[in-house]
């Protein structure tokens, strides 16, 4: 009994904490890094007052948000109003269960890992929709409507991108997908070469799926003030914030795992320690993708609603459909894939 409890209850909780706690700290530092980067791109300094180089700014913000009052709007649906932030956060954290950080470093090495991940990310939209509906506000409802349409559209193209990866890797397991990209040639073994258009489509769809600029129709500060979370304050708002940034980091990790060879080194294995696989490579790749999110934010103006829909349905989904066939031919003729 004791051994059973230890193996199936205590150890999983320890593993989960090993991911969730660093993730939350990473979100805090990511917010700081975002403000710094966007500041530099605007020729400003960014946060520089709290702690050395302003490093503790994010923690100060969190402390401020946690002690603020959560205000329930008049005639809001009380239960759903409080449920919505949790519905946004739970899938954002649960999705990390199948993300591998190294050859054996994964909480759940599930066979249907990619499917599980698709399921979890598709649940995240409920948080946004319910927040918009429950807060009894026109702006929030408009934001929820936009978000629902956008997330459904871009989920399709993300699903198609994953199908191309699955065709080449021949597995739904993320560890197998990374291992399919291992070899002696380093960077030339990665799926980014046979699937180059798909990598671009996947990452841009990921930006759209997380409601980040230039696709932040759900928030749209200049049009609908802040969209679905306009009525949220204090810790409830902080939870939405945490979920959004955790999703951004998740998309960065997935792009590195599916297209950039995960923990494999970009250099050939004959290069000694530089060619060795290590989870530091995965973190470096994910950091590069995470930086792209901030770069996009500082560079591009917001898309118009019809432009977003056009991009998703008329550009990305056809590219994804065609490339599934192309990937099938590549695999059949032994050009790429396992």
């Amino acid at each position: 009994m004791g051994e059973q409890l230890f193996d199936h209850l205590l150890m999983p909780v320890v593993y989960i904490l090993c991911i969730v706690v660093p993730l939350i700290i990473a979100v805090a530092m990511y917010v700081y890094w975002e403000r710094k980067v966007v500041g530099w791109m605007h020729v400003r300094l960014g946060p520089n007052q709290v702690g050395p180089l302003g490093l503790f700014q994010a923690f100060a913000d969190v402390a401020k948000l946690l002690i603020k009052e959560v205000i329930l709007p008049t005639r809001a649906s009380r239960a759903l109003y409080y449920l919505a932030p949790m519905l946004a956060l739970v899938p954002a954290l649960a999705a990390w269960a199948v993300v591998p950080f190294g050859a054996k470093m994964v909480v759940s090495n599930a066979n249907a890992g990619v499917l599980y991940l698709l399921g979890m990310t598709s649940l995240g939209v409920y948080g946004i929709i319910l927040a918009g509906w429950a807060s009894n506000s026109r702006y929030a409802l408009l934001g929820a409507m936009r978000s629902a349409a956008q997330v459904i559209s871009y989920e399709l193209s993300i699903g198609l991108c994953m199908v191309s990866v699955l065709v080449l890797a021949g597995s739904l397991n993320f560890t197998d997908i990374v291992n399919a990209q291992g070899g002696t040639k380093g960077i030339f073994d990665w799926f980014m070469w046979p699937l180059l258009p798909i990598m671009v489509v996947y990452f841009v769809s990921g930006v759209a799926e997380t409601n980040r600029l230039p696709f932040d129709m759900a928030e749209g500060e200049s049009e609908i003030v802040a969209g679905f979370h306009v009525e949220y304050s204090g810790s409830a708002f902080a939870i939405f914030f945490l979920a959004e940034y955790a999703n951004m980091i998740l998309v960065s990790f997935l792009a590195s795992i599916m297209f950039m060879g995960g923990w494999f080194s970009p250099f050939p294995t004959s290069w000694g320690w530089l060619g060795q696989a290590s989870f530091w490579w995965l973190f470096a790749k994910a950091f590069a993708f995470a930086f792209l999110f901030l770069w996009f934010r500082a560079t591009f103006p917001r898309y118009r609603y019809d432009q977003i829909m056009r991009l998703g349905w008329k550009v990305f989904i056809p590219i994804g459909l065609v490339w599934v066939v192309v990937a099938g031919f590549m695999k059949f003729y032994g050009v790429a894939g396992v």
Binding site: L118, G119, Y126, W133, A149, I152
Partner: peptide, 10 residues
């Protein structure tokens, strides 16, 4: 859950 019911809610 992820697609059909979202449209329903919509």
């Amino acid at each position: 859950v992820g697609a059909v019911m979202v449209l329903f809610l919509f």
